[in-house]
Design a binder for these strands. Structure first.
Length: 821
DNA sequence: AGCACGCCGACT
DNA sequence: GTCGGCGTGCTC
């Protein structure tokens, strides 16, 4: 009996329901190269098409069942560690994704490979009774006189049976099919696009020829701003397809060149290093307590509840200092790195060359460079957004999650992981320390601290002993009764006048949902909606267009109602337009800094706007919730919150939590030096506990109310929630399929004895936004004791569902969702 | 999912 | 007889 060495391989592009690990023989010549974590090319399916995969296990085998051999390895070394494979297994199981999708998160950036089929003409014999399609293909190939991808042939003919025809041509010996790695040519270099025209010429061209080509317009606008950009970034940031970029190249407007980019984007920020702040007693206690517990060399988890300005960053720095001294490694997660330049800078100043940065605004080549530094052990500290939790450290011992209540730690793409779960998993394996930190902790984690599952540490003293701002709640219903139908309450208006008079600064938060300004007809009530999404179009004063927030569709503003043809169109919503008008009356336009998704689409523009605001002597920062995050201005006299409650009842069970933390955070920005700041919160629900508690910035008061509500309603932390989202073209079929899951579930539930674990199942009902990009959306909400306790039955039900799915319905599973759209 | 195979009606 | 549409079942 001959023992053969075999490998289990996780293959790319498999859907969840057939996501198995496939076994292959390791040929003798690859015996020394193939290990767990090696990337390989294997034959797959009846026709042995080339597929990329990652080796997940090695085993000996007696050769009873014939196995196909691995073709070859891809990289010179293994790509990821065995520990990463285990982590990937954990992710795919917990979040119901394919194993390969989970592995993708752990691979070095930009290492995905796709095989394309190319067709080459090898003989010109044309049969008389050959179909038009075949004839076309042969003509096209001989015209081009080089291998053409099957995809190209498919798009050129628009015919579904191109593949079939090509295969028949192959059988007849007329063409040959080869498979090539699409990215093989630009492994090291990067394709970079640059403008060939002057800026004014580009603008002219856009006005003349690209009026409706929105994707191409966005690409050009980004190039005008940044000069040149890697194509990967252009695609990622503009949302345009590769096609629109090639078409611009064909028109001679842009040039595409191969360049080798090895830029360290933050090299300039690396200034002086080593300054060590002196901790106050409170900070020292927190640090000591954590270090004390670390001595047990067991996994430990802490929640630091620290009011804004209590100096959490110093605590982080001190902890990291210890980790470096122990020759171990640390990750600091921040909600959105572009919005938290200060914290990143502090780490650079303190630890200099020892720090790497990972976040979405980096280009692929930049990210690769950072990744390599981490893997090679050149750095001991990583500061980054959500995905930095996967930093390939081998001796990880500390993860700090700053602003742990933020929803950005949850990914909105499959696998829909939560970085906090990943952090916990990794540190449990290495007996490390997880530090969660927030001024307004998530209800779930505060509850865990209260019942003693994790340890609570508090920082209560504000830096310089500045008191928390004085918060005034204004009931907007009273304002209306008193004849003020402006968006600004009398109080806020008066405060802003003072700001102007005394040359101070103010921040105004427009709660996002309320911020949308839709256009409606006063005569017939018609609301102008996006033709593809079930949302009202938003008026944008900059472009003068109506735009869809979800798909980017835009159309010019009309002044006649499309429905009843009256001219009584009017802006509704929170009246941003009016708000801006009023603000412009008070301040000049250079003094108003606007920060929202429209003004901050390009990379790093956040930082530009923030520096602009901090430079001005007297200014107003106006924006959506992103202005509440991580900013640290020393001299804001007044904070105003417009439509504080618009997030209260929207978006699932956690609306109150979101509202409270948003208001508390933004109000915390008020305060100048040693003077207390003022905050005005405008609301239509002044009696709601989330609003009332925010007046005194009283987290515990909010928590007591909220936890009672959660307990009463059996919401997290008293259950776990799984959201299953179905999207597709046909609303009836989606509903039928979503409804079907219930039946399948009841079969599986008894099979696995998990009936007791289910609490309730709701739906199917249309999602909060019932249609996006022409796709209808329905969802089912499952409440269970814990997601793990229903894992077997639910996972089988989803697999079966996807397998049975014959009409192009997309199923997404979201475990413990934080956003419900 | 993707893809091949096979069965069936349609059409030169 | 061949082309193309669609249902079915498999992928180490």
């Amino acid at each position: 009996m001959v023992e053969i060495y075999c490998a289990k391989v996780s293959l790319s592009n498999l859907n969840f329901s057939i996501d198995k690990e496939f076994s292959y023989q390791i040929p003798n010549n690859l015996k020394n190269e193939v290990e767990i974590g090696t990337r390989v090319i294997v034959p797959f399916g009846r026709t042995n098409k080339k597929r990329e995969g990652v080796v997940t296990d090695i085993f000996g085998y007696d050769g009873v069942m014939p196995l196909k051999p691995i073709y070859q390895t891809i990289d010179s070394e293994k790509l990821i560690s065995k520990e990463s494979i285990d982590l990937a297994r954990f992710i795919s199981k917990k979040y119901y994704s394919s194993l390969y999708d989970a592995i993708l998160l752990l691979m070095p950036p930009g290492s995905n490979i796709k095989f394309l089929e190319y067709v080459t003409l090898i003989s010109n014999k044309i049969d008389d009774n050959m179909s038009d399609l075949k004839r076309f293909i042969i003509d096209y190939l001989s015209d081009k006189n080089e291998p053409v991808s099957l995809k190209e042939l498919e798009t050129k003919t628009g015919n579904d049976s191109v593949r079939k025809a090509v295969i028949e041509l192959k059988k007849a010996g007329i063409v040959e099919i080869t498979e090539e790695n699409q990215n093989a040519h630009n492994q090291k270099s990067l394709q970079v696009a640059s403008l060939l025209l002057e800026e004014f010429e580009t603008r002219d061209y856009m006005e003349q020829f690209l009026k409706k080509a929105f994707a191409q317009r966005r690409v050009l606008e980004m190039l005008m701003e940044d000069g040149k950009m890697p194509i990967v970034d252009l695609i990622a940031f503009s949302g345009a397809s590769r096609g629109s970029i090639t078409s611009l190249q064909k028109k001679g407007i842009i040039d595409i060149t191969d360049e080798i980019l090895e830029v360290d984007p933050f090299i300039l920020e690396k200034t002086k290093s080593g300054e060590k702040p002196i901790l106050n007693i409170e900070q020292e206690n927190v640090v000591n307590r954590i270090l004390e517990k670390r001595k047990d060399q067991k996994y430990s988890e802490f929640l630091i509840k620290g009011v804004t300005g209590s100096g959490k960053t110093e605590v982080y720095l001190e902890l990291v200092e210890h980790i470096i001294r122990e020759e171990k490694q640390a990750i600091i997660l921040v909600p959105e790195i572009a919005l938290t330049p200060q914290i990143r800078l502090r780490f650079f100043n303190r630890f200099g060359e020892n720090v790497a940065v990972l976040h979405s605004a980096l280009s692929i080549s930049e990210r690769k460079a950072q990744w390599r530094k981490i893997e090679d052990g050149e750095v001991r500290v990583v500061v980054g957004a959500r995905s930095a939790v996967f930093a390939p450290f081998s001796n990880l011992s500390l993860i700090i999650v700053d602003e742990e209540h933020e929803t950005t730690y949850k990914s909105e793409n499959t696998p829909r992981y939560n970085a906090k779960d990943i952090a916990r998993y990794r540190l449990e394996k290495t007996n490390g320390t997880l530090v969660l930190s927030s001024a307004t902790p998530s209800v779930e984690n505060y509850y865990r601290a209260k019942i003693g599952e994790i340890e609570l540490l508090t920082l209560e003293n504000r830096y310089n002993n500045v008191g928390l701002p004085e918060v005034e709640i204004v009931d907007m219903r009273d304002e209306l009764k008193n004849g003020n139908n402006s968006v600004l309450s009398e109080s806020l208006r008066a405060k802003l006048m003072e700001v102007k008079k005394n040359e101070q600064k103010a921040i105004i938060l427009l709660n996002r949902r309320g911020y949308s300004t839709f256009v409606s007809c006063r005569d017939c009530g018609f609301v102008i909606k996006c033709p593809k999404c079930d949302v009202a179009l938003t008026y944008h004063s900059i472009s003068g267009e109506l735009q869809c927030h979800y798909c980017g569709y835009s159309e010019p503003l009309v002044n006649v109602c499309p429905d009843c043809h009256s001219t009584s169109l009017r802006y509704f919503g929170s009246g941003t337009q009016k708000l801006e008008e009023e603000l412009y009356k008070m301040f000049s336009d250079t003094q108003i800094v606007r920060m929202d998704n429209d003004t901050t689409t390009t990379k790093m523009s956040h930082e530009r706007l923030l520096t602009q605001f901090s430079k001005e002597k007297c200014a107003i920062l106006l924006g959506t919730q992103m202005i509440a995050k991580g900013l640290d201005f020393k001299d804001v006299a007044v904070v105003g919150v417009i439509s504080a409650d618009s997030s209260l009842f929207l978006g699932g069970f956690n609306g109150a939590e979101k509202t409270f933390s948003l208001i508390t955070q933004v109000c915390g920005r008020a305060g100048r030096g040693e003077k207390r700041g003022n905050a005005i919160v405008q609301t239509y629900n002044p009696e709601h506990y989330a609003i009332l508690a925010s007046q005194d910035q009283d987290y515990d008061k909010f928590y007591e109310n909220e936890i009672a509500f959660r307990k009463n309603m059996k919401y997290p932390p008293f259950c776990e929630i799984i959201n299953v989202i179905f999207t597709g073209d046909d609303a009836d079929k989606i509903f039928a399929m979503a409804d079907g899951i219930k039946k399948i579930m009841t079969e599986k539930v008894d099979l696995y004895g998990e009936r007791e674990s289910y609490i309730a199942m709701y739906g199917p009902v249309p999602c909060g936004i019932a249609k996006i990009r022409d796709k209808y959306r329905f969802h089912i909400l499952i409440k269970c004791i814990s997601a793990k306790s229903i894992q077997n039955s639910f996972s089988e039900a989803v697999k079966e569902l996807i397998l049975k799915n014959t009409f192009d319905i997309n199923v997404a599973v979201d475990v413990n969702p934080v956003n419900f759209i």
